[in-house]
Structure formats: C-alpha cells, structure tokens
Design a protein around this nucleic acid. Structure first.
Lengths: 344, 344
DNA sequence: CGCATTTTTGCACACGTGTGCAACCCGTAT
DNA sequence: ATACGGGTTGCACACGTGTGCAAAAATGCG
C-alpha cells in the first residue's frame, strides 16, 4: 500500500482526515457534525476548525448508507418540458429555500419501469422525502414505502391512505370563469376547448355547458370548437366561432396559449379586445401579464401546489406518525384587461 | 408486470437478497448487473430472473461509494426561477433522454458556500459528470476536480483548461443587435444592463460601447443604466433614460424581461413603440411573440446550450483523457415589430 | 483522597456494492 | 490418467459515515 501526498491525485477530504487533523476519532467528528449533545466544548471547537481548514464536505452517499439524514428531498416528474411541471418545480424550489433542504429532480420520461426505479432509488436514503409529480398509478411502490413509513407527497392525485397529496379544484375553476363573463352581461359565450382526450379539457367543457344551462343561455354545438391547448388552435377556433351567423361576444379558451391565439385572430380581423370581444384563458402563465390587453384568466395555483407539497412533506418529516392529509387548492379568478361588458 | 415482494416488505431488496434467491454470491450478482464477461449463461439467467422476481433496484449510494458508475449526471444551478435556467434544463433533459442517463438537479440559491458543497457532493460518486450553470467563479473547486479528472461542463463561462465549456457568442450577439439598430439609422442608443456582477451583462455593455465607438456615436455614461435582468428594473432604467435632456431613440435592454419593462414605461408615458422608441431585448423568451408590439430580440440558443453541454460531458465520459473543449454557439437576430427607423 | 456518577471518547460493526485475488470447475491435450 | 489452461465463482476487503457499547476521563461527593 502506498500513500501519495503529492498534489496530483488529490483525494476528497473525508471525516477521517478531519479526525486526524483535530486529533480525535472519526466518531467524534461525526457527532460534532450531527450536533450530538455529549461533546466537550473545546473538542467541538477543534473539530469545527479542522472542518473549516480542510474544506470538508460530507459524502452524501456514505451518510445515506449509514442511515443518516440526507438534508434533501426528491422530486420525481415525467419531464421538464411542460410549463405545468416547471411551475410546480419553481414552487417547490422556493418553499424549500426557506427550509435549507436541497432539491433533487429526477425525470422518468414516461418509462413506467423507470418511475418505480427512480422512486425507490431516491427513497433508499438519498432523500429524506419524496414529491411525486406523475399522473400515473403509483401503486407499485406506494404501499411499500408507506410500510417503511417513508414520507411522500403526491401532486394531482386523489386522496390515498399511503401518502399526503395536494390537488387543484378543477370543477370550481370553470364556474369562476363563467360567473365572471355572465356577470359582465354576456349571453353568447363561445368555448375553444383543449385536447378533449385530456380530463381537464373535457371537464372544463362539461362545466362550461352546465353553467350556460343553469343560466338558461344558449349552449349549442355551434358555440364550441375543439382545440389542442396550443396557440394556433386557438386562432383557428376563434375564426370558426366568429364566422358564425350569430358570433359570441365572449370566448372562453381552454388555456392561456389558446387565448393568445384567439387574440391573434381578433387583431387580424381588425376587431378590438375587450370592446368587440371578451377573451379569457386558463392557467395564468407568465405571458398573461405581458400581452396587450393583459389577459383575464383563471389562475391554476401550480407554484402553490409545489409549495403545498413541500409543506405536507415537512409535516411528515417532523411527525412521521401523523395521518396523511389531502389538500385541495382553490383556483383564482384574475381579472385583467381582456374582459368587459358586451358592446350592445 | 407484477413484483413479488415478500411478506415483510419493510426492508428494501438488496443485492444479497438477489444472490440468495439465485443461489450465488453477491459478487456474481454484481458482475451480472454490470455486464462483466465471465459469467456462465445459465447463471446469468438465474440472476436476471431473481432480479426480476424480487423487483431489485440498485442502491445508488452504495454503488457510488464502492466506486461504480451512477448512471446519472448532475446539474448545478442557482435556482429554477428564471426562464434562462428552465430552458437550459429542458435542453439537457431532452438530450439526456436519448442517452439513458438520469438527471439530478441541485440548486444553490445564491449561497456561494453551497455552490462548492453541492458540486463536491455530487462529484463524490453520486454523478458521473457535472454540468455547472452558475455565473460565478468556480475556481474554488474546478482545479480540484480537474486533478481527479472528473468530467465537468460549464455553461456560459469562458474557456478554461480545467473543464469543457459551452457559451453563447456574447460578443457577436451584441454586435448583431447594435448593427441592426444603427442600420435603421439610430444615433442615440441607450442601454439598460443586466446585473453587472454577471459576466454576460458586463460583456454586453462593453460591446455596446465598443460598437458605438466604432461608429463614432455617443457612448457616454448618461446613455446606460444598470438593471438586474428583471422587468421592473427595465422600467426604472427606461424612465431614467427617457428623462435625460437628450433621450435615446432606441433602447437595448439586457434581457427580454427588461425590454418588457421598457415597454411598460413607454406605454405609461403615452409614447408608441416603435414609432417614438425602438426597443430590443436579449433571449427571445416565449413572451416575446405574445406582446404588442412583438419584440425584436437576439435569440439565445438556450436549449441548444443545454444539449451541447450534455454532449461535451459525454465526450469526456467516453474519453476522459481528451483535452477540454470550448464551444461557442451562435446567436440569431430576430426582427419583429418593436424596432423601426427613428422618427426625426 | 477514594469512590460513585456523569460526561466524553474510541472501538468495532453496519449499511450495499464493486473488485482483486485465489480457488474452483471443466474441457482438452499430452 | 494426469497436467494444463482458461472460464467461473466466492472470499474478503474497501468505500465514508453513523451509532451502540464499553472504556476512559472528568466531575461531584463525602
């Protein structure tokens, strides 16, 4: 066995190096690092100075292996491409900043097997807790982890006894939007839906229709066009609706991006918003405050969802035996400039 | 696919469990998992079946501790709040998807100490390579890691012998912007900078000044205001510039968000863009095509930057002894509606 | 000062995996 | 049949840290 003290192959500083430098055993260093009570004051000081002097950084893996806390929580998501995921991550990151915990993001990219792998990986000591942001069935591992009493927070899942969860109140959001438009005096309210293959789009359409029926307003098929959540489909939908013999005075788009498309068509036709047509969206994306007119929309509390998940997780970290909780976050009507009473 | 967990699923399945189930030693299981050549075919099959039956998932920490590959690469960033970071992450994630490697995101939240900590943590076996996305001085750890021959890719840093790096052609991007404005006939061109603590902001300002000098145009201190990359600082900067005795006819903002702020001030004063003031930004964020007028800007290839960083990293993973590389990606002038020849 | 009690410290093992080395097995050539 | 050789396999140790237990040291008390 040979020791090389040369500057070439510098080995990371370990707890043993610190111990040697401070003239104690590595156990003592460990105790200092973890704030154990039974350490003499001057010993603690010597160790802390050694840590400082050598620039010691704990090896997360060894610590996790040995059963110590990792000081970080994991977030498992499908991908980072959609703004939905990005916003949730932002919320998580910001809430975490206050607590001093680290964030580990892991993406599964739609491989179902990978999902279970990633979750188990992170739960094996790498992270103290896990936030799962995947709209799939986590039954494969949830019960397992619950048996180990491992803290998990699910986002956008229904209630389950195995983990805490946070979700959005989808129903009331469409009601909020329609109440706003009807309250302004609109009687013909068109709807450009998102991709009807998705739950959210379908529920929004059903609730749009239900609200019109409840107020005895027209709700026929010539007031609704299917889109796909994207800007271009919003423009196409608006073109169709505005070409009707009796065009709507307001259009509810299934997403903010489609609302932008609706406004594209409005501008193209030389109409003005909100004077000639009121427009609403869903989500309250960052773009909503940048456009002219600024968009009236239903804010989906995506960041808040992330924050809430962190709080749920930290509750479980502090008190592992407390029962799991299910939280439903309200959406919020954000009135800006794109809606007004109808002209006539 | 169904997994058979034993009656007591309280403890995670380890390599030893698999070994027992297959009637071999844990070493053999390890060799199967890592694709070593000297394993008999039927033994390999038995082990693989045991892995499947027990639903074994490797413990990353133990593997990392023991010196094995982690199969994941790390990304260290300040935060995930800015779209710059988000876009880079998207690029990284997408490029990584092709390679089968996992992504670990870690945020430092502007604590300089944490930066070194996080980097060292992840480099101690947790990740096979690291992408650093922090506009600060990584001298503290770079040399150290280079000595260990640890693969690192820096984003938006200058060339360094210690790591591969990818950056955008900051010089030419500013030249592109200024050439456009000067070509339109502008002679007084103001500049609201980003946070001058960052490299990018400082270089943009220097190049702004250099271009003005090269064309013998005024470039004094009363044509430049420091901002912080955010919308509000853009508005403040514009207010200051427009209050000068001889206000500029065009303003180059250090980011698209600041350009939005500039437009806020323009609108507030009842001015019109581009008639009374031309406005340009940097980045080409999603918002740029949504606003009115649509923003003329310099497109920063942020996703491409992420992809490039991954490729650089994988080159080093495959060939650790190859020299480091510095790649510069071209930016692109995107002319939209917010720039025009000056009125007078 | 001696003894009991408490505080402080070190030893040794555990965590799960990878790997050098030696031992094993089996087939083939002598 | 024996020796040889190469493909397989197991043993034992290493990685860095946490912790129960016992030893050592410090403290308190008479």
């Amino acid at each position: 066995m040979s020791y090389d003290f040369g500057a070439m192959a510098s080995r990371p500083v370990t707890i043993v190096d610190v111990a040697r430098h401070a003239g104690v055993s590595h156990s003592t260093v460990s105790r200092v690092l973890n704030g154990h009570p039974h350490v003499r004051a001057d010993t603690r000081l010597r160790v802390e100075q050694a840590v400082e002097a050598l620039g010691y950084v704990a090896n997360l893996q060894a610590r996790g292996l040995a059963g110590g806390p990792s000081g970080s929580i994991g977030l498992v998501a499908l991908e980072v491409s959609t703004s939905y995921v990005v916003e949730v991550i932002r919320g998580v990151d910001e809430e975490l900043a206050a607590s001093g915990l680290d964030l580990m993001l892991s993406t599964t990219r739609r491989h179902d097997v990978r999902e279970r792998e990633q979750v188990l990986r992170l739960s094996q000591g790498l992270c103290d807790g896990l936030i799962v942001l995947i709209p799939a069935a986590p039954d494969l591992y949830l019960e397992d982890l619950a048996a180990r009493n491992y803290p998990i927070a699910l986002i956008d899942h229904g209630a389950t006894p195995f983990a805490s969860s946070a979700t959005m109140a989808n129903r009331s959001s469409t009601e909020q939007a329609m109440a706003h438009l009807i309250g302004l005096g609109h009687r013909r309210i068109g709807h450009v839906t998102g991709n009807l293959a998705t739950d959210a789009a379908r529920r929004r359409m059903l609730n749009w229709r239900a609200m019109l029926q409840a107020h005895s307003l027209e709700h026929g098929d010539d007031l609704v066009v299917e889109g796909d959540f994207r800007r271009e489909s919003g423009q196409r939908g608006a073109a169709i609706l505005l070409d009707r013999s009796a065009p709507p005075t307001a259009i509810l788009a299934g997403s903010d991006f489609m609302a932008v498309g609706v406004l594209d068509e409005v501008r193209k036709r030389g109409l003005r918003c909100p004077d000639d047509l009121s427009v609403m969206g869903f989500d309250d994306v960052a773009e909503a405050t940048v456009m002219t007119p600024q968009l009236t929309t239903i804010r989906q509390p995506m960041q808040a969802l992330g924050r809430q998940a962190v709080r749920l997780l930290m509750d479980r970290l502090r008190n592992p035996d407390a029962p799991t909780v299910h939280v439903e976050l309200a959406t919020e009507l954000v009135v800006r400039e794109s809606t007004a009473p109808p002209a006539h």
